[in-house]
């Protein structure tokens, strides 16, 4: 039963991932990728890491849908079933992909995995949190803040109109001159 489930999830993950490059609709490609990720989340759940598995589902759904929005920006045709090629540098990409796959799969099969010594903790979510946030607290916090700063920095650099354009050099305009005001009015 467990083996069957594993095989189904593993095959789904790989096949859906490969199909991403076979379909000619951006929407289908996006959601096939999502399917692949969901299968991986299922595999993570099978290892008993409930929290991680569910968080993968959560993040991937949001991520793929946000990606779909960018897709509309660059291609507004709804449904978009027009056959189109989404490949660049096909040969190089194929070489990289195959090499990576062989390396990873080879590693997984050839490495002499250690035998489990202890027993899994009673509450894996708690154990995961403690191992991440106990000894590695500083690393995780630095990582988190760095990532967040990167996101904010990218947006600030990319935005054509920042807050100084909208609210004046001293940021003292009573309201912005946006055509469409937000709900707060700044």
């Amino acid at each position: 039963m467990t083996t069957a489930l594993f095989v189904v999830l593993a095959v789904t993950a790989v096949v859906a991932g490969a199909l991403v490059f076979r379909v000619d609709s951006m929407a289908r490609a996006t959601f096939l990728l999502l399917l692949s990720f969901l299968a991986v989340a299922g595999l993570v759940l099978m290892t008993g890491l409930q929290y991680l598995g569910v968080v993968i589902v959560l993040m991937m759904v949001i991520e793929m849908v946000v990606m779909a929005i960018f897709m509309i920006m660059y291609m507004m045709n709804p449904a978009g079933l027009m056959p189109m090629s989404m490949f660049h540098n096909t040969r190089g990409a194929a070489v990289i992909a195959v090499t990576t796959f062989v390396a990873l799969a080879g590693g997984a099969l050839l490495v002499d995995w250690p035998v489990r010594g202890g027993r899994p903790a009673a509450d894996l979510t708690m154990a995961l949190g403690e191992s991440l946030m106990g000894g590695q607290m500083l690393t995780m916090m630095t990582l988190g803040v760095t990532l967040f700063a990167t996101i904010v920095g990218t947006v600030v650099l990319a935005a054509g109109r920042g807050r100084y354009d909208r609210l004046g050099d001293e940021l003292d305009a009573p309201a912005s001159d946006d055509r469409d005001r937000g709900g707060v009015g700044r």
Binding site: M73, Y74, M75, M76, N77, A79, L81, M82, A159, G160
Partner: peptide, 23 residues
């Protein structure tokens, strides 16, 4: 002509100056 006879979207500048699709 697209399948179903929709007009293909074309490119245009949006209000932030990005070249994006318009319909």
């Amino acid at each position: 002509e697209l399948p179903g006879g929709l007009a293909m979207a074309d490119l245009g500048e949006d209000r932030d100056g990005l070249a994006l699709d318009q319909l």
